[in-house]
């Protein structure tokens, strides 16, 4: 514990600005992964433990596309699109076959998929870790705001992530299909009784979730190490976020993600050895006091 350092940090605008942007960066990238996870759970009541695999594949695809084309924008779009298709295929060919069975059967399938794709990545890209490197457009000196450091690439990431969050919220709240998805999350029987094609809907939700995870992987790739199995730690953290925010709630995931980001940002200064334990404790408390999460609705 180093509360003195924490107090000192809160007393300095530079420190607050820097650690807040750090927290936002950590949180918003996690949000993109968690958003898909929470959406899939909300509509299909499935915990997609293969979601980290989507993220990993997104990062690797972006790496290869950037290598081949030299365009980072193209790499990000390609990764998102590829993982959206992958998500649909995953739902159609694997998950859809065990609907109505024991939920643990879906878990078994996710496990098999994680095993398979960790090895496929090793087969295609090799066992060693890769780094994509910063795209040339972002090779600039950090910006200073009120004495705090904000790298331009991260400023861009925050903007893109917030835009995606807004688009997602808007899309779900305003468009017809978005409203159907929201309704399906609340009451799937009713949606299906209204004659809406739930088969297509489920595939669409998996596609959306997969696409978001793929985008997150691609957006994070320039600064992270790519290695087989890299999706695992991201899966755990996004899972915690969806549970705290409420399984099925996009707004909850956003707030929980930012909350955890900030906790990490300031936790590293105040109690560097105990941030994880604190996050788990928060998760347990939320589950006990409000099982459906801060923003979730009680499952029927």
């Amino acid at each position: 514990m180093d509360l003195e350092a924490l107090v000192a940090c809160f007393g300095s605008l530079a420190c607050v600005v820097t650690q807040t942007t750090s927290g936002l960066i950590v949180g918003l990238l996690l949000f993109l992964v968690a958003a898909g996870l929470t959406l899939i759970f909300g509509v299909l009541k499935i915990v997609n433990f293969a979601h980290g695999t989507f993220y990993m594949l997104g990062a690797y695809i972006a790496y290869s596309v950037l290598r081949a084309s030299g365009s980072y924008g193209l790499a990000v779009l390609a990764a998102g699109a590829a993982m959206a298709v992958f998500g649909v295929a995953f739902e159609r060919f694997l998950i859809a076959r065990v609907y109505g069975g024991n939920v643990l059967m879906q878990l078994l399938i996710c496990y098999a998929v994680v095993l398979i794709f960790d090895d496929l990545v090793k087969l295609v890209w090799g066992a060693d870790f890769h780094a994509m490197g910063m795209p040339d457009a972002f090779q600039r000196a950090p910006i200073f705001i009120a004495g705090g450091v904000v790298p331009p690439f991260y400023a861009g990431l925050i903007a893109v992530s917030l835009c995606l969050a807004a688009l997602l919220g808007l899309g779900l709240g305003v468009t017809r299909i978005g409203k159907i998805i929201t309704a399906a999350a609340d009451n799937p029987q009713m949606v299906s009784a209204l004659g809406i094609n739930t088969t297509a809907l489920f595939a669409l939700v998996f596609g959306l979730g997969g696409g978001l995870a793929g985008l997150a992987g691609a957006l994070a790739a320039p600064v992270r190490s790519l290695s087989p199995g890299m999706g695992f730690s991201v899966l755990i953290e996004s899972f915690i976020i969806t549970v705290i925010g409420g399984m099925g709630s996009i707004a909850g995931a956003l707030l929980a993600a930012i909350g955890i980001g900030l906790l990490r940002g300031f936790g590293t200064i105040g109690f560097p050895l105990f941030t994880d334990g604190l996050i788990y404790a928060a998760m347990i408390l939320v589950l006990l006091l409000r099982p459906s999460g801060l923003f979730g609705r009680e499952m029927v």
Binding site: C9, A14, C15, T18, Q19, T21, S22, G23, I25, V26, L29, V149, Y154, A220, V223, R224, S225, M230, S233, V234, R264, G265, G267, T268, I269
Partner: peptide
Amino acid sequence: GQPDLTEVITKLIQ
């Protein structure tokens, strides 16, 4: 294996 070291890096810089 922490994928994102941002908060650690900014802490060190400060």
